[in-house]
Computed example of a mutant assay.
Amino acid sequence: MIERNRFLSVLTHVVLLLGVAVVVFPVYIALIASTHTTEEIIQVPMPLTPGTHFLENFTAALLSTDTGTGLHTPMARMLTVSLVMALAIAIGKIAISLLSAFAIVYFRFPFRMLCFWAIFVTLMLPVEVRIAPTYKVVSDLHMLNSYAGLAIPLIASATATFLYRQFFLTVPDELAEASRVDGAGPMRFFKDVLLPLSATSTAALFVIQFIYGWNQYLWPLLVTTEERMYPVVVGIKQMISAGDAETQWSIVMATAILAMLPPAVVVLAMQKWFVRGLVDAEK
């Protein structure tokens, strides 16, 4: 039994609170800045209490096409692009990884393990390494400035395939034998047995892959040349003026807060499943 120590208990709580403060303080600054005008934000010191322009700034960021930031597309459109891209990447990665892991574990075909290791080796080749040939392929297929061009090159996932393969290897062979005796085919076994068993792992992967897709910056920056197809992360960067132009920081901060909301909602809504998917070992 671990002995209770009051000093250590207080120390751990202090360290925890300091860690929370370090993480939350930048978000607090962005939220406060989104309630002030740009003139108030650039004052020294910057106000640390809420202002009176909350609705004005958020309405301008979300709906207006004339925010003085250099962009002419409402942020609602960019949020929609980010949402579609993140969902397509998350769902696509999970679907492809499930099927590829299922084929590798439960089917016997020539060069089966070679195929698996070929998929696994791609972990060493991130998007940044293969970005030039990937862009060439997307351009030749006329997928620039499209949802397909934003999502399809990013939906393959060696990590998810590996995790599903390791999980399927722990599923007792008796389940496959029982399904075969009952007359269930491979896809019936996949749908009725493997999918329900892997629900928690799928939920955890969905949260991770959704945030991965939502935070993409480099690839969308390359394949989008029209504002209507900018995701919100690229939109925020384009809102920050270069040179002598004045940046509307109040609108930028309001947009940043709006950009945080969908990933936060996904994490909070799937928190229980996410934690179970990471730590639950029950089959």
Rank of each mutant, 00 (worst) to 15 (best):
M1T: 14
R4V: 10
R6L: 13
R6C: 01
S9F: 14
V15I: 14
V15A: 15
L17D: 00
A21Y: 06
V27E: 00
A30Y: 00
A33C: 05
A33M: 02
H36E: 00
T38F: 02
E39T: 15
I41K: 01
I42F: 08
T49I: 13
P50L: 02
G51F: 03
E56L: 11
E56I: 09
A60F: 00
A61F: 07
L63H: 12
D66C: 08
T67H: 01
T69H: 08
L71E: 10
P74N: 14
L79G: 09
M85D: 04
A86T: 03
A88Q: 01
I89T: 11
A90T: 09
G92E: 02
L98M: 15
S100F: 02
F102D: 04
I104G: 07
F107R: 08
F107L: 10
F109C: 09
F116V: 04
W117G: 05
F120S: 14
L125S: 12
E128N: 10
K136F: 12
V137C: 10
V138N: 03
S139R: 12
D140E: 12
L141H: 06
A148H: 02
L150A: 07
P153D: 05
L154G: 08
L154F: 06
I155S: 07
I155N: 01
A156W: 05
A156Q: 11
A156I: 06
A156L: 11
T161P: 01
R165K: 15
Q166I: 07
T170F: 08
V171E: 04
E174K: 14
A178H: 06
R180S: 14
R188N: 06
R188H: 05
F190M: 08
V193I: 13
L195C: 08
A199W: 10
A199V: 06
V207P: 02
F210I: 11
G213D: 06
G213Y: 07
Y217D: 03
P220H: 06
T224F: 11
T224E: 04
T225Y: 08
V233M: 15
A245K: 14
T247A: 13
W249E: 01
I251D: 01
V252F: 08
M253F: 11
M253N: 13
T255R: 06
A256Q: 04
A256I: 03
I257M: 09
L258P: 06
L258C: 13
M260L: 15
P263L: 14
L268W: 05
A269N: 10
M270E: 03
W273D: 12
R276F: 05
R276Y: 02
V279N: 01
D280H: 03
E282N: 13
K283P: 00
K283E: 08
